[in-house]
Nucleic acid binder design. Sequence first.
DNA 1: AAGTTAATTAAACGTTTGTTTAATTTCTGG
DNA 2: CCAGAAATTAAACAAACGTTTAATTAACTT
Lengths: 200, 200
Amino acid sequence: MEVAVELFATNGFEGTSIRQLAQRADVNIAMINYYFGSKEKLFETLLEQKASYMRNRIEAVEADESLTEIEKLDQIIEDYVVRFFSQPEFHRVLQQELLVSQREQLHQNVIGLFVKNTQNVVAIIEKGIRKKQFKKVDPPFVFASIIGTINQVMQSKIMCNMLLNKAFDENPYQDPLFKKRLIQHLKQMVHAQLLIEKDI
Amino acid sequence: MEVAVELFATNGFEGTSIRQLAQRADVNIAMINYYFGSKEKLFETLLEQKASYMRNRIEAVEADESLTEIEKLDQIIEDYVVRFFSQPEFHRVLQQELLVSQREQLHQNVIGLFVKNTQNVVAIIEKGIRKKQFKKVDPPFVFASIIGTINQVMQSKIMCNMLLNKAFDENPYQDPLFKKRLIQHLKQMVHAQLLIEKDI
DNA sequence: AAGTTAATTAAACGTTTGTTTAATTTCTGG
DNA sequence: CCAGAAATTAAACAAACGTTTAATTAACTT
Protein backbone atom coordinates (compact mmCIF):
# COMPACT_ATOMS: atom_id res chain seq x y z
CA MET A 1 0.00 0.00 0.00
CA GLU A 2 2.95 2.33 0.54
CA VAL A 3 4.00 1.68 -3.02
CA ALA A 4 0.43 2.22 -4.20
CA VAL A 5 0.24 5.71 -2.67
CA GLU A 6 3.53 6.57 -4.25
CA LEU A 7 2.66 5.37 -7.75
CA PHE A 8 -0.94 6.60 -7.74
CA ALA A 9 0.31 10.01 -6.68
CA THR A 10 2.71 10.41 -9.59
CA ASN A 11 0.96 8.41 -12.31
CA GLY A 12 -2.69 8.48 -11.31
CA PHE A 13 -4.92 5.48 -10.74
CA GLU A 14 -5.46 4.48 -14.37
CA GLY A 15 -1.86 5.42 -15.12
CA THR A 16 -0.57 2.81 -12.71
CA SER A 17 -0.65 -0.87 -13.62
CA ILE A 18 -0.85 -3.82 -11.28
CA ARG A 19 2.38 -5.09 -12.76
CA GLN A 20 4.14 -1.84 -11.85
CA LEU A 21 2.79 -2.06 -8.33
CA ALA A 22 3.80 -5.68 -7.94
CA GLN A 23 7.30 -5.07 -9.23
CA ARG A 24 7.96 -2.06 -7.02
CA ALA A 25 6.53 -3.79 -3.97
CA ASP A 26 8.47 -6.92 -4.87
CA VAL A 27 5.48 -9.25 -4.74
CA ASN A 28 3.76 -11.48 -7.26
CA ILE A 29 1.11 -9.90 -9.49
CA ALA A 30 -1.57 -12.30 -8.33
CA MET A 31 -1.09 -11.38 -4.69
CA ILE A 32 -2.74 -8.02 -5.16
CA ASN A 33 -5.96 -9.60 -6.31
CA TYR A 34 -5.55 -12.32 -3.70
CA TYR A 35 -5.44 -9.87 -0.81
CA PHE A 36 -7.45 -6.90 -2.07
CA GLY A 37 -9.80 -8.51 -4.57
CA SER A 38 -9.12 -6.03 -7.33
CA LYS A 39 -7.12 -2.97 -8.24
CA GLU A 40 -10.07 -0.74 -7.42
CA LYS A 41 -10.64 -2.40 -4.06
CA LEU A 42 -7.01 -1.73 -3.21
CA PHE A 43 -7.61 1.92 -3.99
CA GLU A 44 -10.72 2.05 -1.84
CA THR A 45 -8.95 0.40 1.06
CA LEU A 46 -6.16 2.91 0.74
CA LEU A 47 -8.47 5.91 0.83
CA GLU A 48 -10.68 4.63 3.64
CA GLN A 49 -7.73 3.87 5.82
CA LYS A 50 -6.26 7.33 5.69
CA ALA A 51 -9.06 9.73 4.92
CA SER A 52 -10.87 9.64 8.23
CA TYR A 53 -7.98 11.11 10.19
CA MET A 54 -8.60 14.81 9.48
CA ARG A 55 -12.29 14.35 10.26
CA ASN A 56 -11.56 13.42 13.85
CA ARG A 57 -9.01 16.19 14.32
CA ILE A 58 -11.37 18.90 13.10
CA GLU A 59 -14.27 17.67 15.16
CA ALA A 60 -12.08 17.61 18.24
CA VAL A 61 -10.99 21.19 17.65
CA GLU A 62 -14.53 22.39 17.07
CA ALA A 63 -15.71 20.77 20.29
CA ASP A 64 -12.87 22.22 22.36
CA GLU A 65 -14.51 24.95 24.45
CA SER A 66 -11.29 26.31 25.83
CA LEU A 67 -10.48 27.88 22.47
CA THR A 68 -11.84 31.08 20.94
CA GLU A 69 -13.08 30.95 17.37
CA ILE A 70 -9.95 32.45 15.88
CA GLU A 71 -7.80 30.11 17.93
CA LYS A 72 -9.78 27.20 16.53
CA LEU A 73 -9.14 28.36 12.99
CA ASP A 74 -5.45 28.79 13.72
CA GLN A 75 -5.35 25.27 15.11
CA ILE A 76 -7.14 23.84 12.07
CA ILE A 77 -4.76 25.62 9.71
CA GLU A 78 -1.81 24.17 11.52
CA ASP A 79 -3.34 20.68 11.61
CA TYR A 80 -4.05 20.74 7.92
CA VAL A 81 -0.61 21.90 6.90
CA VAL A 82 1.16 19.45 9.19
CA ARG A 83 -1.01 16.60 7.96
CA PHE A 84 -0.59 17.47 4.28
CA PHE A 85 3.14 17.90 4.62
CA SER A 86 3.53 14.57 6.35
CA GLN A 87 1.81 12.73 3.52
CA PRO A 88 2.07 14.81 0.37
CA GLU A 89 1.65 11.85 -1.97
CA PHE A 90 -1.53 10.68 -0.38
CA HIS A 91 -3.13 14.06 -0.65
CA ARG A 92 -2.20 14.27 -4.28
CA VAL A 93 -4.10 11.02 -4.76
CA LEU A 94 -7.09 12.48 -2.91
CA GLN A 95 -7.07 15.57 -5.08
CA GLN A 96 -6.99 13.47 -8.23
CA GLU A 97 -10.00 11.53 -7.08
CA LEU A 98 -11.86 14.80 -6.48
CA LEU A 99 -10.95 15.95 -9.97
CA VAL A 100 -11.74 12.75 -11.83
CA SER A 101 -15.21 11.30 -11.53
CA GLN A 102 -14.75 7.96 -13.20
CA ARG A 103 -15.27 5.82 -10.12
CA GLU A 104 -18.55 7.37 -9.06
CA GLN A 105 -18.99 5.76 -5.66
CA LEU A 106 -15.47 6.55 -4.51
CA HIS A 107 -15.73 10.06 -5.89
CA GLN A 108 -18.88 10.65 -3.88
CA ASN A 109 -17.28 9.32 -0.70
CA VAL A 110 -14.31 11.62 -0.96
CA ILE A 111 -16.57 14.57 -1.63
CA GLY A 112 -18.81 13.64 1.28
CA LEU A 113 -15.84 13.62 3.61
CA PHE A 114 -14.68 16.94 2.36
CA VAL A 115 -18.09 18.54 2.66
CA LYS A 116 -18.35 17.49 6.30
CA ASN A 117 -15.04 19.13 7.07
CA THR A 118 -16.21 22.26 5.34
CA GLN A 119 -19.41 22.36 7.32
CA ASN A 120 -17.52 22.17 10.58
CA VAL A 121 -15.22 25.03 9.68
CA VAL A 122 -18.13 27.07 8.33
CA ALA A 123 -19.90 26.55 11.65
CA ILE A 124 -16.91 27.94 13.52
CA ILE A 125 -16.71 31.00 11.30
CA GLU A 126 -20.44 31.66 11.58
CA LYS A 127 -20.22 31.45 15.33
CA GLY A 128 -17.45 34.03 15.25
CA ILE A 129 -19.61 36.30 13.12
CA ARG A 130 -22.56 35.95 15.49
CA LYS A 131 -20.29 36.83 18.40
CA LYS A 132 -19.29 39.96 16.47
CA GLN A 133 -15.67 38.86 16.62
CA PHE A 134 -15.48 38.28 12.87
CA LYS A 135 -16.33 40.46 9.92
CA LYS A 136 -19.25 39.41 7.76
CA VAL A 137 -17.37 37.20 5.33
CA ASP A 138 -18.51 34.37 3.07
CA PRO A 139 -17.71 31.34 5.26
CA PRO A 140 -17.56 28.47 2.75
CA PHE A 141 -15.32 30.53 0.52
CA VAL A 142 -13.00 31.34 3.39
CA PHE A 143 -12.51 27.63 3.94
CA ALA A 144 -12.06 27.13 0.21
CA SER A 145 -9.24 29.67 0.35
CA ILE A 146 -7.49 27.93 3.22
CA ILE A 147 -7.66 24.46 1.77
CA GLY A 148 -7.20 25.71 -1.78
CA THR A 149 -3.99 27.50 -0.88
CA ILE A 150 -2.55 24.36 0.66
CA ASN A 151 -3.62 22.24 -2.28
CA GLN A 152 -2.13 24.73 -4.68
CA VAL A 153 1.18 24.58 -2.91
CA MET A 154 1.08 20.77 -2.67
CA GLN A 155 0.27 20.35 -6.33
CA SER A 156 3.78 20.23 -7.67
CA LYS A 157 7.18 19.97 -6.07
CA ILE A 158 8.89 21.49 -9.08
CA MET A 159 6.56 24.48 -9.05
CA CYS A 160 7.29 25.16 -5.40
CA ASN A 161 11.01 25.07 -6.01
CA MET A 162 10.71 27.43 -8.93
CA LEU A 163 8.60 29.88 -6.94
CA LEU A 164 11.02 29.95 -4.06
CA ASN A 165 14.17 29.92 -6.19
CA LYS A 166 15.27 26.60 -4.83
CA ALA A 167 17.24 23.87 -6.55
CA PHE A 168 15.38 21.72 -9.01
CA ASP A 169 15.55 18.49 -7.05
CA GLU A 170 14.88 19.68 -3.52
CA ASN A 171 11.87 18.55 -1.57
CA PRO A 172 10.07 21.63 -0.24
CA TYR A 173 7.70 19.49 1.79
CA GLN A 174 10.55 18.37 3.99
CA ASP A 175 11.70 21.93 4.56
CA PRO A 176 10.45 23.13 7.97
CA LEU A 177 10.97 26.73 6.92
CA PHE A 178 8.66 26.31 3.98
CA LYS A 179 6.01 24.81 6.21
CA LYS A 180 6.36 27.67 8.66
CA ARG A 181 6.05 30.23 5.89
CA LEU A 182 2.86 28.63 4.60
CA ILE A 183 1.28 28.51 8.06
CA GLN A 184 2.22 32.10 8.72
CA HIS A 185 0.76 33.22 5.41
CA LEU A 186 -2.49 31.40 6.02
CA LYS A 187 -2.90 32.77 9.52
CA GLN A 188 -2.11 36.28 8.38
CA MET A 189 -4.63 35.90 5.57
CA VAL A 190 -7.40 34.60 7.78
CA HIS A 191 -6.73 37.13 10.51
CA ALA A 192 -6.73 40.07 8.12
CA GLN A 193 -9.87 38.83 6.50
CA LEU A 194 -11.83 37.97 9.61
CA LEU A 195 -10.73 39.96 12.64
CA ILE A 196 -12.29 43.30 13.39
CA GLU A 197 -9.78 45.96 14.41
CA LYS A 198 -10.96 47.15 17.78
CA ASP A 199 -8.16 49.53 18.68
CA ILE A 200 -9.42 52.74 17.20
CA MET B 1 -11.06 18.44 -29.62
CA GLU B 2 -14.21 19.64 -27.90
CA VAL B 3 -15.02 16.06 -27.07
CA ALA B 4 -11.47 15.50 -25.89
CA VAL B 5 -11.64 18.33 -23.34
CA GLU B 6 -14.91 16.99 -22.09
CA LEU B 7 -13.77 13.39 -21.69
CA PHE B 8 -10.29 14.18 -20.37
CA ALA B 9 -11.89 16.44 -17.77
CA THR B 10 -14.15 13.76 -16.35
CA ASN B 11 -12.10 10.61 -16.94
CA GLY B 12 -8.53 11.86 -17.09
CA PHE B 13 -6.08 11.33 -19.92
CA GLU B 14 -5.29 7.66 -19.29
CA GLY B 15 -8.90 7.07 -18.35
CA THR B 16 -10.08 8.09 -21.79
CA SER B 17 -9.65 5.76 -24.76
CA ILE B 18 -9.32 6.73 -28.39
CA ARG B 19 -12.35 4.59 -29.13
CA GLN B 20 -14.41 6.58 -26.65
CA LEU B 21 -13.22 9.82 -28.20
CA ALA B 22 -13.95 8.61 -31.72
CA GLN B 23 -17.41 7.40 -30.85
CA ARG B 24 -18.44 10.57 -29.04
CA ALA B 25 -17.02 12.76 -31.80
CA ASP B 26 -18.64 10.52 -34.41
CA VAL B 27 -15.46 9.94 -36.38
CA ASN B 28 -13.43 6.87 -37.28
CA ILE B 29 -10.82 5.72 -34.78
CA ALA B 30 -8.01 6.01 -37.29
CA MET B 31 -8.74 9.66 -37.98
CA ILE B 32 -7.38 10.76 -34.62
CA ASN B 33 -3.97 9.33 -35.41
CA TYR B 34 -4.27 10.55 -38.98
CA TYR B 35 -4.73 14.16 -37.94
CA PHE B 36 -2.95 14.38 -34.62
CA GLY B 37 -0.33 11.64 -34.90
CA SER B 38 -1.08 10.10 -31.55
CA LYS B 39 -3.30 10.36 -28.51
CA GLU B 40 -0.59 12.25 -26.67
CA LYS B 41 -0.06 14.68 -29.53
CA LEU B 42 -3.77 15.42 -29.47
CA PHE B 43 -3.45 16.25 -25.80
CA GLU B 44 -0.47 18.50 -26.40
CA THR B 45 -2.24 20.32 -29.21
CA LEU B 46 -5.22 20.82 -26.95
CA LEU B 47 -3.18 22.32 -24.15
CA GLU B 48 -1.01 24.51 -26.33
CA GLN B 49 -3.99 25.94 -28.12
CA LYS B 50 -5.74 27.13 -24.99
CA ALA B 51 -3.12 27.63 -22.35
CA SER B 52 -1.48 30.73 -23.73
CA TYR B 53 -4.58 32.89 -23.38
CA MET B 54 -4.21 33.82 -19.69
CA ARG B 55 -0.55 34.63 -20.25
CA ASN B 56 -1.39 37.44 -22.64
CA ARG B 57 -4.16 38.82 -20.44
CA ILE B 58 -1.95 39.00 -17.36
CA GLU B 59 0.93 40.60 -19.20
CA ALA B 60 -1.41 43.20 -20.64
CA VAL B 61 -2.73 44.07 -17.20
CA GLU B 62 0.74 44.30 -15.70
CA ALA B 63 1.87 46.66 -18.45
CA ASP B 64 -1.18 48.92 -18.13
CA GLU B 65 0.15 52.04 -16.45
CA SER B 66 -3.23 53.62 -15.95
CA LEU B 67 -3.99 51.16 -13.17
CA THR B 68 -2.79 51.18 -9.55
CA GLU B 69 -1.39 47.98 -8.13
CA ILE B 70 -4.54 47.01 -6.29
CA GLU B 71 -6.61 47.73 -9.39
CA LYS B 72 -4.34 45.42 -11.35
CA LEU B 73 -4.89 42.62 -8.86
CA ASP B 74 -8.64 43.19 -8.94
CA GLN B 75 -8.54 42.99 -12.71
CA ILE B 76 -6.51 39.78 -12.67
CA ILE B 77 -8.89 38.18 -10.19
CA GLU B 78 -11.80 39.01 -12.42
CA ASP B 79 -10.01 37.76 -15.53
CA TYR B 80 -9.13 34.48 -13.89
CA VAL B 81 -12.59 33.79 -12.59
CA VAL B 82 -14.27 34.70 -15.86
CA ARG B 83 -11.84 32.58 -17.82
CA PHE B 84 -12.13 29.57 -15.52
CA PHE B 85 -15.90 29.77 -15.45
CA SER B 86 -16.12 29.94 -19.23
CA GLN B 87 -14.11 26.72 -19.63
CA PRO B 88 -14.37 24.70 -16.44
CA GLU B 89 -13.62 21.38 -18.14
CA PHE B 90 -10.43 22.60 -19.69
CA HIS B 91 -9.09 23.86 -16.41
CA ARG B 92 -9.86 20.58 -14.77
CA VAL B 93 -7.68 18.97 -17.41
CA LEU B 94 -4.92 21.49 -16.71
CA GLN B 95 -5.06 20.77 -13.00
CA GLN B 96 -4.82 17.06 -13.60
CA GLU B 97 -1.74 17.54 -15.67
CA LEU B 98 -0.19 19.58 -12.88
CA LEU B 99 -1.00 16.82 -10.42
CA VAL B 100 0.15 13.88 -12.51
CA SER B 101 3.71 13.85 -13.76
CA GLN B 102 3.64 10.91 -16.10
CA ARG B 103 4.18 12.83 -19.31
CA GLU B 104 7.27 14.71 -18.19
CA GLN B 105 7.64 17.16 -21.05
CA LEU B 106 4.01 18.25 -20.98
CA HIS B 107 4.06 18.47 -17.22
CA GLN B 108 7.04 20.79 -17.37
CA ASN B 109 5.39 22.99 -19.98
CA VAL B 110 2.25 23.47 -17.94
CA ILE B 111 4.31 24.26 -14.87
CA GLY B 112 6.46 26.69 -16.84
CA LEU B 113 3.40 28.57 -17.97
CA PHE B 114 2.04 28.71 -14.49
CA VAL B 115 5.29 29.91 -12.99
CA LYS B 116 5.46 32.80 -15.46
CA ASN B 117 1.98 33.92 -14.46
CA THR B 118 3.00 33.73 -10.84
CA GLN B 119 6.08 35.81 -11.41
CA ASN B 120 4.05 38.56 -13.05
CA VAL B 121 1.59 38.73 -10.19
CA VAL B 122 4.38 38.58 -7.63
CA ALA B 123 6.03 41.51 -9.40
CA ILE B 124 2.85 43.55 -9.06
CA ILE B 125 2.53 42.78 -5.37
CA GLU B 126 6.18 43.59 -4.71
CA LYS B 127 5.80 46.89 -6.46
CA GLY B 128 2.83 47.68 -4.23
CA ILE B 129 4.92 46.85 -1.18
CA ARG B 130 7.77 49.08 -2.33
CA LYS B 131 5.31 51.90 -2.86
CA LYS B 132 4.15 51.36 0.73
CA GLN B 133 0.63 50.77 -0.51
CA PHE B 134 0.66 47.11 0.52
CA LYS B 135 1.49 45.39 3.77
CA LYS B 136 4.59 43.22 3.86
CA VAL B 137 3.01 39.95 2.78
CA ASP B 138 4.47 36.82 1.21
CA PRO B 139 3.80 37.51 -2.50
CA PRO B 140 3.99 34.02 -4.05
CA PHE B 141 1.70 32.68 -1.36
CA VAL B 142 -0.80 35.44 -1.95
CA PHE B 143 -1.04 34.38 -5.55
CA ALA B 144 -1.26 30.74 -4.49
CA SER B 145 -4.26 31.70 -2.38
CA ILE B 146 -6.02 33.44 -5.24
CA ILE B 147 -5.51 30.73 -7.77
CA GLY B 148 -5.89 27.97 -5.20
CA THR B 149 -9.28 29.28 -4.11
CA ILE B 150 -10.54 29.28 -7.67
CA ASN B 151 -9.16 25.81 -8.32
CA GLN B 152 -10.71 24.55 -5.13
CA VAL B 153 -14.10 25.83 -6.18
CA MET B 154 -13.71 24.48 -9.72
CA GLN B 155 -12.68 21.06 -8.54
CA SER B 156 -16.08 19.51 -8.26
CA LYS B 157 -19.54 20.58 -9.33
CA ILE B 158 -21.20 18.35 -6.78
CA MET B 159 -19.13 19.78 -3.96
CA CYS B 160 -20.08 23.33 -4.90
CA ASN B 161 -23.74 22.46 -4.92
CA MET B 162 -23.48 20.80 -1.52
CA LEU B 163 -21.67 23.78 -0.04
CA LEU B 164 -24.22 26.24 -1.29
CA ASN B 165 -27.25 24.05 -0.58
CA LYS B 166 -28.17 23.82 -4.21
CA ALA B 167 -29.82 20.98 -6.06
CA PHE B 168 -27.70 18.00 -6.90
CA ASP B 169 -27.70 18.43 -10.66
CA GLU B 170 -27.30 22.19 -11.03
CA ASN B 171 -24.32 23.75 -12.72
CA PRO B 172 -22.82 26.36 -10.39
CA TYR B 173 -20.40 27.50 -13.06
CA GLN B 174 -23.26 28.81 -15.13
CA ASP B 175 -24.73 30.69 -12.20
CA PRO B 176 -23.75 34.38 -12.47
CA LEU B 177 -24.49 34.87 -8.79
CA PHE B 178 -22.01 32.21 -7.83
CA LYS B 179 -19.36 33.83 -9.98
CA LYS B 180 -20.07 37.20 -8.43
CA ARG B 181 -19.82 35.77 -4.94
CA LEU B 182 -16.44 34.20 -5.69
CA ILE B 183 -15.04 37.40 -7.17
CA GLN B 184 -16.28 39.42 -4.23
CA HIS B 185 -14.76 37.00 -1.76
CA LEU B 186 -11.40 37.06 -3.52
CA LYS B 187 -11.27 40.83 -3.70
CA GLN B 188 -12.27 41.16 -0.07
CA MET B 189 -9.61 38.66 0.87
CA VAL B 190 -6.85 40.34 -1.09
CA HIS B 191 -7.85 43.81 0.04
CA ALA B 192 -7.96 42.86 3.71
CA GLN B 193 -4.64 41.12 3.41
CA LEU B 194 -2.78 43.75 1.41
CA LEU B 195 -4.19 47.21 1.90
CA ILE B 196 -2.93 49.39 4.72
CA GLU B 197 -5.68 51.21 6.57
CA LYS B 198 -4.77 54.85 6.31
CA ASP B 199 -7.80 56.44 7.98
CA ILE B 200 -6.74 56.45 11.61
C1' DA C 1 4.60 -36.38 11.37
C1' DA C 2 0.56 -36.25 8.78
C1' DG C 3 -3.24 -33.60 7.23
C1' DT C 4 -5.30 -29.25 6.43
C1' DT C 5 -5.22 -24.61 5.39
C1' DA C 6 -2.99 -20.49 3.81
C1' DA C 7 0.42 -18.15 0.97
C1' DT C 8 2.88 -17.77 -3.19
C1' DT C 9 4.01 -18.65 -7.82
C1' DA C 10 4.23 -18.84 -13.11
C1' DA C 11 1.39 -19.17 -16.77
C1' DA C 12 -2.56 -18.29 -19.29
C1' DC C 13 -7.05 -15.91 -19.85
C1' DG C 14 -9.92 -12.78 -22.46
C1' DT C 15 -10.16 -7.65 -23.09
C1' DT C 16 -8.82 -3.45 -24.19
C1' DT C 17 -5.38 -0.41 -25.39
C1' DG C 18 -3.01 2.82 -29.08
C1' DT C 19 -1.53 2.40 -33.59
C1' DT C 20 -1.05 0.85 -38.45
C1' DT C 21 -2.33 -1.08 -42.73
C1' DA C 22 -4.44 -1.41 -47.01
C1' DA C 23 -8.51 -0.69 -49.44
C1' DT C 24 -12.06 2.53 -50.64
C1' DT C 25 -14.40 6.85 -51.11
C1' DT C 26 -14.36 11.82 -51.70
C1' DC C 27 -12.40 15.90 -53.19
C1' DT C 28 -9.75 18.84 -56.35
C1' DG C 29 -7.27 21.10 -60.19
C1' DG C 30 -6.35 21.20 -65.04
C1' DC D 1 -14.14 14.39 -66.97
C1' DC D 2 -10.53 12.23 -65.20
C1' DA D 3 -5.86 11.50 -63.03
C1' DG D 4 -3.81 12.34 -58.46
C1' DA D 5 -4.14 13.71 -53.84
C1' DA D 6 -6.58 13.75 -49.59
C1' DA D 7 -9.90 11.90 -46.52
C1' DT D 8 -12.22 8.08 -44.60
C1' DT D 9 -13.03 3.43 -43.59
C1' DA D 10 -12.96 -1.50 -41.58
C1' DA D 11 -9.86 -4.69 -40.25
C1' DA D 12 -5.82 -6.27 -38.17
C1' DC D 13 -1.68 -5.46 -35.17
C1' DA D 14 1.15 -6.24 -31.20
C1' DA D 15 1.45 -4.83 -26.61
C1' DA D 16 -0.42 -4.09 -22.13
C1' DC D 17 -4.11 -4.42 -19.18
C1' DG D 18 -6.71 -6.63 -14.89
C1' DT D 19 -7.90 -11.00 -13.50
C1' DT D 20 -8.01 -16.10 -12.93
C1' DT D 21 -6.27 -20.66 -12.85
C1' DA D 22 -3.93 -24.53 -11.31
C1' DA D 23 0.15 -26.08 -9.27
C1' DT D 24 3.56 -25.57 -5.69
C1' DT D 25 5.47 -24.13 -1.32
C1' DA D 26 4.99 -22.64 3.49
C1' DA D 27 2.59 -22.50 7.70
C1' DC D 28 -0.15 -24.22 11.15
C1' DT D 29 -2.99 -27.87 13.96
C1' DT D 30 -3.79 -31.91 16.44
